[in-house]
Amino acid sequence: MTTQPQTADAVADRPDDQLDALLTDIAEDFSTSPRSPILHTPAEHGLSFQDVTFPSEDGTPLEGWFVPAEGADTVVVINHPRWFSRSGLPAHLEPWRSKWAGTGNDVEVNFVPDIAILHAAGYHVLAYDLRNFGHSGAANGGLTSGGIFESRDVIGSLRYVRSRPDLNDAKIALFSRCLGANATLFAMERAPQAFEHVRCLVACQPLSARVVLEQGAKRNGLPVECVDEIGRRIRLRTSFHLDAMSPVAAARSVRTPTLVYQVHDDPMTRPTDVQAVFDAIPGQDGRDKELFWITGTTRRWDGYLHFQNNPTRVLDWLARHTR
C-alpha cells in the first residue's frame, strides 16, 4: 500500500467503482509479493561462500549462501523482510523506486555487508531466501501470509544447519528481519522444540498486518474503516484474518533471549505495535530481552541498514549469548 497520499476530499469524491478498484488493488498487493533480484554476493567482500539449497519444513526448496568462517563455533542464520531477498532490495531502481518513494524508502538496501561484518566477527553465516522470494521456490499459490507459511522456512533452515556435519555441534543464533522476524516468532509458537538449542534471536522490525494497513490508509487519505473491508478481501485471497497475521500472540511463546529493534518514527507501522511484540516476549530481567529504538529518521529502510552502520549493539548481544 504505497500509492501517493491523497486528501480526504479526493477520496470522498472518488466514484464507488474507483474506490472498489483501489481496495482490490491494495488487497492483491498485500496478498502477494513481487520477487527482488539478487544483485550482490559475498564475493564482493572477498568472501568464499557456497550456494546452497535445502528444503523448508514442507519441502519447498529454499536457496541461500553459506559463508564459513575459519575456527567459528557459531552460525548466524539470516532471513529477510518482505519484498526483499537475501541480498537486499534495489529500491533505488524502477519499478521498486516508484513503489517506495512515497514513504521515503527509495534507497538501496544491500544486506551483503551484514554478512561481511558477521564473518569478520568470527561467525559462520547462513543467509537464505524465504519462499516466493529471491531464488527460493514458489509455494502456497505465491501467497504472502505475514509469517505463517514462512515459519516453515525458519524450521527448514534450522534442520539444514543440523544436517551439515561441519555444523553439527555449532551454536546457533538467528537474525530475522520484518517478515522473517514474524516467521521466526510463528515458528517458535508452533514448533518450540526446534529452538531448544538456539542461543539467541535478533528481531529487526516485526510488525502486524492490520497496523501496516491502517498506516497505509492514513497516508492515502482513506477512512480507517476501509481497513476492515481490505482485510475481508485479503482473507478471501489468503484465508487468513488480518489479526491472525500479527506476531504479538506468537511472541508469548519465545523462550530464547531476544533483541528487538525498530525505527521509532517509521510511518509504515506504530511504536505501540512493536512495543506490544516486545512486551509479549517472556523475560525475567534485562538479560533475557532488550528493545531499542532507532531515532532521527522516518525511513524504515534505515532500520534494515542499521546493523551495517552501527553493528556494536547487535554484535555485543550475539557475543553475550554465544561465547
Rank of each mutant, 00 (worst) to 15 (best):
L318D: 05
G303Q: 07
F186G: 00
A173L: 01
I155V: 15
N310M: 00
Q308E: 12
I230R: 05
S239I: 14
A72W: 06
R35L: 10
R237V: 10
L185V: 09
P282E: 05
P68R: 08
R320V: 01
S246I: 08
P90L: 09
I115P: 04
E150A: 02
M1F: 15
F292L: 08
A43T: 10
L23I: 12
H80Q: 11
V254E: 00
V154C: 00
H119N: 11
E57R: 15
S56Q: 06
E290F: 04
N220G: 13
A27S: 15
D288Y: 09
R86T: 08
C204K: 10
S33W: 06
A69Q: 11
L158R: 01
A121D: 02
F186I: 08
L143Q: 12
R323M: 09
V248E: 05
F240M: 09
P90I: 04
D265M: 01
A69I: 07
A170Y: 04
D20A: 15
A181E: 03
V211L: 00
S87V: 02
T184S: 10
E63G: 12
R323K: 12
S85D: 02
P61R: 09
T60G: 07
T184Y: 03
R97L: 01
E28I: 14
T41C: 05
L23T: 10
Y304N: 03
P192V: 05
L242F: 02
